[in-house]
Amino acid sequence: MTNEEKVIIFQLKDEEYAVPVQHVKSIERMQHITRIPRTVDFVKGVINLRGVVTPIIDLRLRFGIEEELYTDTTRIIIVSVGTIEAGLIVDAANDVIDLDKDSIEPPPEVVGGVDAEYIQGVAKIEKRLLILLDLVKVLNPEKLDVQLAKESLN
């Protein structure tokens, strides 16, 4: 029993990613996002999530995947890690499964263009390959400052 973990599966480009369900607060449809001026490109802005102003990150841009127009399947996954709460824009969110922890393997060097840094591991279930994201690293605000500093240098 303890060896299973519930994860939410979402799609980004052609890959399937997974985040532990306890970090996911809700999944929202696309809505109006208020742009925040002069911040890094992957921060799309903020939304009003039932009275809480929540920052929204475009995961494609965050991982350096080319941007694409939002579609009907585009979703915002609201995640919370520690004190940080944010929404992640993904191409589609379609599944919740129980993942056997034993099936998780350490990440290979590069997976689908995403730096291994952000990956906790990969899991193979039947014919699907799931990439487990390390949300703590994805949501590290220090990255913001580094990125901003880089941009202001250019």
């Binding site: 208020t34 102003v53 920052p55 940080i84 709460e85 913001l144």
Partner: peptide, 18 residues
């Protein structure tokens, strides 16, 4: 409303409102 813990130093923006 604050912008939350993630966006801590945004230029010339002190907060948000709904």
């Amino acid at each position: 409303k604050s912008l939350g813990q993630y966006l801590t130093s945004v230029f010339a923006i002190s907060g948000a409102t709904i």
